[in-house]
Design a protein around this nucleic acid. Structure first.
Length: 755
DNA sequence: CGATACGTCCTTTTT
DNA sequence: GGACGTATCG
C-alpha cells in the first residue's frame, strides 16, 4: 500500500522528509496528525528506522494514544516498542532507569500542584516568614519558572540578593528543593529538568539514547518551554552531525506562555537547527470558509507570527451567530436553548457540540442551565476526580508504600482514619526526623525513644506494622487486589461505611470507581506495577481523565464543557464560545502588556477554529464576579471578525421577540403563578414552548415527591430519590440513577416524572 | 479535644 | 461564591 497516497502535496513533502531537521508549520485543522503518523509509518515501512528507534513527543496522553492507534492502522509492526508519549511520561521512563546517578532513588514519586503547595507552605512556616505576605501559590509559580530556566535556588538567591522579599523567596525555593529530595519526590518541572541534567552530566547515558533514537518527532512545538527545548536539542543534535528532528507546530496556537512556553522556540527554529527545511500547511480540512475567514481576520492583528492564511474548498458555510445577553444566567439559558434546538432541528449529536469558556468558574451557570433543560453534559477539568479527598487519601497510602520517604503522604494519612495519633505526636516524629535527617516514616521506627505517652507509642507502632504488612502484600498481589487490600486493611473502608449520609455513600462510590480504574489499568497495560500506575494517574491531563470516564460509562452522547486551553487539538461540529467580554476574554489584568494580549488573541483563534460547521459567540452585558455585578462591554475580538461572517438575523432577536410576546401573555392570563419568579418561569419552559410550540409547561412537582419515589428523567432514565432539600422552587433532590450514578437536580426544573 | 462558625483570600489558563 | 485556615464553642 502506498502510504503517502491521499496526502496533499505539502503534506506529502513533509511526510517523505528523511534526514535533517524540519519544521512543519501546521495551521489548525490542516492535518498535522496525519502527517506525523504517515511519516512514522513511512520511515518504518521503508526500513529507515525500526519501531524502537523512534521517539515521538506529544503534549497530552490523548494525542499519544491517538497517534499510536492511527499508526497501527497504517502498518503492522510492534507499535508498543515505539516511544510515543508526553514530555513528562518520556522523562519518567528515562529517569526510572538512571536517576540514581543524580542521587535519587529509582522509586521516586511525583508531586502534583497540591502537594507542592503544601510543601511550600511548610517551608514558609519553617523560615518564619509572614504567611500573609508570602503567597504559596505565587512562590510556586516563581519556582516553576526558575526551574524551567534551569536556574538553581542558589543562583536565584545571588541574583536577587539586594531584594529582601525576593531573597526570601529564594530561601523558600532552596528549602523546598531540600524537602523534595528528602521525600524522594519530583514535581512536574523536575521531571523534565532532571532528565536534561542527567543527560548533560552523564556522557554515557546520553550516548545510549543518541544511539537508540534515530528519529525524533515533536508535536505542538510552539508550546515547548526552555527545558523542553533543551531536551529536544540535546537528544536531537548528535556528535556525528546527525540531527533528525521533526517538529510540528503553529505559532498562532501558542497559548502556554504563562507556564514558560517560549514562542521564539518555533519562530527561531531555523536559527537553532541550521539548514532546517520549513513547510507550511495552510489547507484546512476541518472548518467552513466562514469560520476560517473569521479566524484569519482575528489572527491577522498579531505581530508575533510567521504569517499564514488558512483556506478551504468548503465554500458554503453557515454564518456565525452572535448572541447578546443581559447576564450570565441568560447567556447560559440561551446556550442550552440553542443547543437543544440544534439537536432537534438539525440532528446534531450532543457529542458533536461543545461549550468553551476562558475560566473554569464560568462553567457553573452553564451547568445549571443544561441540567434544567435535560441536556446531558460532561465537564472537563474543574472538579477533578483524582482531587477528591477520599481518592487522594488512598493515593497517599499507595505513594507512601511505594516510597517511604514521602512525608507529604505520611502527614496526609497518618491519622486518617483516626488512630489516635494527634498533631503533637506527629510534631514529635517530625522533629526527630529533621534532627536525624531521615524521613518521618523511618523515624516512626524509633518512636519508643521519643518522649511520648505509651498510648501514642502503641498507636504509631500499630500503624507501622500495618504498613509493613501492606508493603509485603504489594509484591505478591495484583495491582487491583492490592489496592483493595489497602482500602480495607487501613480501616479506610470501615470509616467510609460508617458514614451513612449521601456524601458518605458517594465517597464509597468514588472509591469503587477508582478501584475499577485500577483494574482497567492492570488489564490494559503490560507495565502495570504500582509505580507505573501512580505515574500514570499523576500525569493524566484533564482531557485524558474526561476521556477515561467516558469510556468507563459507555455512554457517548454528551455535550462537552471545557476551557479553551483544554479544547486545543479537539474539534466539534457546533461550538459555543461564551463570555466574550472585555476583561473576561481577553482576560487582561492591570499589568497587561501587548504580549499578553497577543496570547489572548491566539487563544480566541484556537477557540474559533475548533468549530467545523457552526459557531456561536455569546456575551453578557452584566456578569456576576465574586458575587457582585460588573458591567462588561463586548470583547474586542468580536470586532476583529469581518462583519460579513455574521448572521444578521442573530438568534437573540427572534428569541427576544418570542419571549416578550409570551411574557405579555403570561402577565395577563397567569397571575396565579406566584411561587415562581417571573424569570424562572420564563426560563423553565415558556421559551422552549414558544420556539417549538410543542412541549407544555410542566406542573409543579415539588410537593409531590418524597424520598424513595421512583422517577423517570428525560436524559438519565430511571432513578430513586434518596434525599430532598430546600423549599418551593428551590427544592433539590438527590437521585440515584440506575445507570448514571448519583445526581443532584432542581426539582422544579428537572425533566423528571414520578413513576 | 474535636466539631463548627466565621473571616480571608482568591482565579486565568495546566503538565 | 467557595475553599481554606483560624477562632470559638460544646
Amino acid at each position: 500500500m502506498d502510504l503517502l497516497r491521499g496526502l496533499n502535496e505539502k503534506q506529502r513533502e513533509a511526510a517523505e522528509h528523511d534526514k535533517g531537521p524540519i519544521l512543519v508549520i501546521a495551521g489548525a485543522g490542516t492535518g498535522k496528525t496525519r502527517v506525523l503518523t504517515h511519516r512514522i509509518a513511512h520511515l518504518i515501512q521503508t526500513g529507515k528506522a525500526k519501531p524502537w528507534e523512534i521517539l515521538s513527543i506529544t503534549f497530552t496522553n490523548k494525542a499519544a494514544k491517538e497517534m499510536k492507534e492511527r499508526i497501527g492502522q497504517l502498518i503492522d509492526y510492534d507499535i508498543d516498542k515505539m516511544w510515543i508519549g508526553t514530555f513528562h511520561s518520556v522523562c519518567v521512563k528515562i529517569l526510572r532507569r538512571d536517576i540514581d546517578r543524580l542521587g535519587y532513588d529509582k522509586n521516586f514519586v511525583i508531586y502534583d500542584t497540591d502537594d507542592q503547595k503544601i510543601l511550600i507552605k511548610d517551608c514558609i512556616k519553617e523560615l518564619n516568614l509572614d504567611t500573609k505576605k508570602y503567597n504559596a501559590n505565587a512562590i510556586r509559580s516563581i519556582i516553576s519558572s526558575e526551574k524551567n530556566k534551569q536556574n538553581t535556588a542558589d543562583k536565584f538567591i545571588s541574583e536577587n540578593y539586594g531584594n529582601f522579599a525576593m531573597r526570601n523567596i529564594g530561601e523558600v525555593y532552596s528549602l523546598y528543593e531540600k524537602k523534595l529530595k528528602i521525600c524522594n519526590a519530583l514535581d512536574f518541572d523536575d521531571l523534565i529538568e532532571k532528565t536534561v541534567k542527567l543527560l548533560q552530566t552523564n556522557e554515557d547515558i546520553l550516548e545510549k539514547y543518541h544511539e537508540k533514537f534515530k528519529y525524533i518527532l515533536v508535536d505542538e512545538y510552539q508550546d515547548t518551554n526552555n527545558v523542553q527545548y533543551k531536551l529536544v536539542k540535546i537528544l536531537g543534535k548528535k556528535k556525528n552531525g546527525e540531527n533528525n528532528v521533526f517538529v510540528v507546530g503553529d505559532e498562532d496556537q501558542s497559548i502556554y506562555g504563562w507556564r514558560g512556553a517560549d514562542i521564539s522556540n518555533i519562530l527561531d527554529f531555523e536559527k537553532d537547527f541550521e539548514e532546517a527545511k520549513v513547510i507550511k500547511l495552510e489547507k484546512n480540512y476541518r472548518s467552513t470558509n466562514v469560520i476560517l475567514d473569521a479566524a484569519n481576520g482575528v489572527i491577522r492583528n498579531n505581530y508575533q507570527r510567521k504569517g499564514k492564511n488558512l483556506y478551504t474548498d468548503y465554500e458554503c458555510g453557515s454564518l456565525i451567530k452572535l448572541v447578546e445577553t443581559d447576564n450570565e444566567k441568560e447567556e447560559a439559558f440561551m446556550v442550552s436553548a440553542l443547543m437543544s434546538k440544534e439537536h432537534r432541528k438539525n440532528n446534531v449529536k450532543y457529542s458533536e457540540m461543545a461549550i468553551l469558556y476562558r475560566t473554569n468558574a464560568q462553567s457553573r451557570a452553564l451547568e445549571e442551565s443544561l441540567m434544567r433543560e435535560g441536556i446531558p453534559y460532561k465537564i472537563v477539568g474543574g472538579l477533578k476526580f483524582y482531587n477528591r479527598k477520599e481518592i487522594k487519601d488512598i493515593i497517599a497510602y499507595l505513594m507512601l508504600i511505594q516510597n517511604q520517604k514521602d512525608n507529604i503522604s505520611f502527614n496526609r494519612i497518618i491519622n486518617v482514619p483516626r488512630r489516635k495519633i494527634g498533631p503533637k505526636t506527629v510534631e514529635t516524629i517530625s522533629e526527630h526526623a529533621m534532627r536525624t535527617e531521615v524521613s518521618m516514616f523511618e523515624s516512626s521506627y524509633d518512636v519508643e525513644e521519643l518522649s511520648l505517652s505509651q498510648g501514642a507509642i502503641n498507636s504509631v507502632q500499630n500503624f507501622v506494622s500495618m504498613m509493613e504488612m501492606l508493603m509485603i502484600k504489594k509484591d505478591v498481589m495484583s495491582l487491583s487486589e492490592f489496592i483493595e487490600s489497602v482500602y480495607e486493611d487501613t480501616g479506610y473502608k470501615a470509616m467510609l461505611l460508617e458514614d451513612d449520609t449521601v456524601e458518605g455513600r458517594s465517597r464509597v462510590d468514588n472509591i469503587d470507581e477508582f478501584l475499577s480504574a485500577a483494574k482497567d489499568f492492570e488489564e490494559r497495560y503490560l507495565e502495570n506495577s504500582l509505580e507505573d500506575f501512580l505515574a500514570h494517574i499523576a500525569l493524566l491531563s484533564d482531557v485524558d481523565k474526561a476521556d477515561e470516564e467516558k469510556d468507563a460509562e459507555n455512554t457517548s452522547d454528551y455535550v462537552t464543557l471545557l476551557t479553551v486551553h483544554s479544547a486545543k487539538g479537539l474539534e466539534f461540529d457546533t461550538v459555543f464560545v461564551t463570555g466574550l467580554e472585555e476583561r473576561m476574554f481577553p482576560i487582561i489584568r492591570d499589568d497587561d502588556d501587548d504580549d499578553d494580549l497577543e496570547e489572548e488573541r491566539r487563544l480566541f483563534y484556537v477557540a474559533v477554529t475548533r468549530a467545523k460547521r457552526m459557531l456561536y459567540l455569546t456575551y453578557a452585558n452584566d456578569r456576576l464576579v465574586f458575587g457582585n455585578h460588573e458591567m462588561r462591554s463586548r470583547s474586542r475580538f468580536i470586532g476583529e471578525i469581518p462583519t460579513e461572517c455574521f448572521d444578521n438575523s442573530s438568534p437573540q432577536t427572534i428569541a427576544d421577540k418570542k419571549i416578550k410576546h409570551l411574557e405579555e401573555n403570561i402577565a395577563s392570563h397567569n397571575n396565579e403563578i406566584n411561587s415562581f419568579s417571573f424569570n424562572q418561569a420564563r426560563k423553565m419552559n415558556i421559551f422552549k414552548g414558544g420556539l417549538e410550540n410543542k412541549e407544555k409547561a410542566p406542573t409543579l412537582k415539588c410537593d409531590k415527591m418524597s424520598v424513595g419515589d421512583k422517577i423517570m428523567h428525560k436524559a438519565w432514565g430511571i432513578g430513586t430519590i434518596v434525599q430532598l432539600s430546600g423549599e418551593g422552587d428551590d427544592q433539590k433532590a438527590v437521585i440515584a440513577f440506575d445507570n448514571k450514578g448519583i445526581k443532584t437536580v432542581m426539582l422544579s426544573y428537572a425533566p423528571i416524572e414520578k413513576l
